[in-house]
Design a protein around this nucleic acid. Sequence first.
DNA 1: TCCTCCCGCCAAGCA
DNA 2: TGCTTGGCGGGAGGA
Length: 810
Amino acid sequence: LKTPLKQVATSQLVLTERQPECQPLTTPPKPKETPPADPWTPTSNLKMLISAASPEIRSREQRRQLSDSSSEVLQTKHCLQEHLLGDEYEKSQPSRKEKSLGLLCHKFLARYPDYPSPSQKSYICLDEVTEELHVERRRIYDIVNVLESLHMVSRLARNRYVWHGRHNLPQTLQALKKVGEENKYIQQIQMIKKREYEHEFDPDSERNEEMSSSFGSSEQSEMSFVDLPGVEFRAASVNGRKYKSLRVMSQKFVMLFLVSTPQIVSLEVAAKILIGEDQLEDLDKSKFKTKIRRLYDIANVLSSLKLIKKVHVTEERGRKPAFKWTGPEVLPNTQDTKLEATSTACSPPISESIPSKEQCSKALFPSKGKQNFTRHSSLIKLVKSIENDRRKIQSAPTSPVKISASMYLFLTFLLEASFSLFLSQMTAEEMQVKCALSSPEAVPKPEPSQQPALSQPLGVCSASHSSVSPVILPHPQSGVSYAIYLHPSQAHTVTTYSPGFMLQPLPCANVTGIKSNNSKVLNKITTEEGDTQRGSDEPTKSLATEERPETKSETSSQRCLKRSQALPENNLIKRRKSDEESLDTSLTFFPSGYLIPLTHCTHGNKAECSNKEKAGVCSLQHTAYSSPITGVIPMPASELKTVNIPAFHITPLNIMLSPNSIAAAPVLSNSCLNSSSTSSAPNPSSSALNFMLQHIGLIPAGVQVPANPVLQHMPVSSQSESISHSSGSTSMQEGKVIEFTFYSSINESNFLFSLQPSAPKEPQAVTENFFRTPGGPNTEPSLSANSDGTQRTSQGALYTPQRKLEVSED
DNA sequence: TCCTCCCGCCAAGCA
DNA sequence: TGCTTGGCGGGAGGA
């Protein structure tokens, strides 16, 4: 059996990247009369002589003179070796790049047609290949193993493989995607990113135990080779090393791309996941490095297959190598999903019979007999992780937060970042569904073309981030400016202008559903809110109920309830009582979840303002804000956690602010309410934040905080702070603070921030407390993982890490 | 300096 | 027992 040569093999195929089959615009074809191996320049002969050992040139020779070229080149090489001494010979050697696995893979692939005729089988003889490509057998194994993982080849016998080409690729990718989804790789990726984020805050913390428990033991997590029906896996050593095999690693690597959105996977994350599934407890640097090495090997082959492309992801911590999926799009595993949905390189005229979905499923998930396919151990891990989270939540104390006026500005950044991330982490499908469910008339369905922007997860700056940026909303009558966080789906757009601060299209507040699952307190609150609020709540409430199946093992509200019951010192009722007391005096309530007063209510109008706002009208006096917002929800933030709000439909703020406590908050805007001037500010970068914070003295020089600091309980000094703005139009008054409690809660179907006035606390340095890290001197808020990609402080407040990410291609 | 990954040792396992 | 297969990590080229 001879290894068949690819019908069309030119030097171009070897020296340049191969064009995808279906690419419409290609380089004009080379004139036929030009022999592929002819010298291109007058000096080419010399170059060829000098670099005769180059694999490319050798390959060219091989193709031109099929049988005897290799020996000639070898002779040339030997001659060169004889005549060139020392450095000269070294220089004549092919460079490292020329010997790369990627290039070798190109050459390997050039030997075989992408879509071989089913009638004639193509066989690969390893000896032949190694001889013709002048590489060590070991290297061919690397290539073949990866190709085998994609079912582009399969092992026939010793030294012999069958070449399938890309015929099986669509099915394979679909199967891999399904397995990847079953293995909850998305969650694992999020968890790893989250832990990376934690690590930034607490580099010394030992979380291996936690990680191990969440990833499960190695025996649980072993994953077999994902096979396809009719493509038998006959690896040589299937028993001993298969779990570490490059094949399995390659499949997992591909799965990560297929389940990710966007389809960019960093080597680091991939390596951690692969290690995690092996033996996380043995995680050490060398193992990590080894995994990375292997991933490079795999990535080189996948790159040659045009399935991935190298990119770089820039985060706060630097530039990380990553790869972007450039292969065919793999649609969800539905019965209707035809394989032709895959595109470009994988859409040949498939003449082979395509295995049915049932066959694939049966093969992938056999109900009995030999287990050929993935064990879904990640489910076990997930449960463990969730249990850990739940334990922490239930035992977590709650404490109020004070935050200074200067912090407010910063908080707006945080809110934006967090909410932006939340949005970005939603898949386009979720968005469509939830938008449609929650506000069918107001929410236009995202165009398919918009989906990528909407579904950018994991720190990639989404183009849609601006849609949830805070708006500084002046209120001339009350003298209060508000920051509003609303999603555009909320309603009509109004604009405002606030010099020196973020300006975004301002959606009018459209009261969103706030649903109480079971909290008596909430019922009471609802009563307090009044009928109007309830009325506006109803549609969404019902929708939220529909949207949120009972299968959720434990809602955030339940968790919160448990927590509150378990913690007398933070008893909700106590808190509520306290809140009500403050309400009697000076507390101002703003419509639930939307507005943050930025400026003080003067003493002259404070009471009026307070009363108005208590009635839910203070912020609504202006016609531009005559939205359906009605009523307020005065409740402790911890109780607010019981509110179940359909994600994406609500503005994630619940605010109760005391005019006293905000008496001197800055006026950020005095612009005309109806001004049409609008400008968008970019998402604040980490460096910008750090600069700002350092500039205003909130953090010492040299201290860096990420763009999305932990949102957690932050005892903040009520003492005078040195705050000054030497630039910009925003001025902060000294010695005044806004006091509120910030909670956030995110899970799959809930998203809630709340702000509320906090009880007086011992003065503490704002910087120290706001930016303290878990595990630091003040270790109260420790971070823990959550299965849904969010993070949680020990008090139960959740946040989702986000980094400013830039993806750059090399 | 760090990223990238070639190279080859050597062990597992097959014929 | 020899050969095939492939895990693994040192260390060097390259950016």
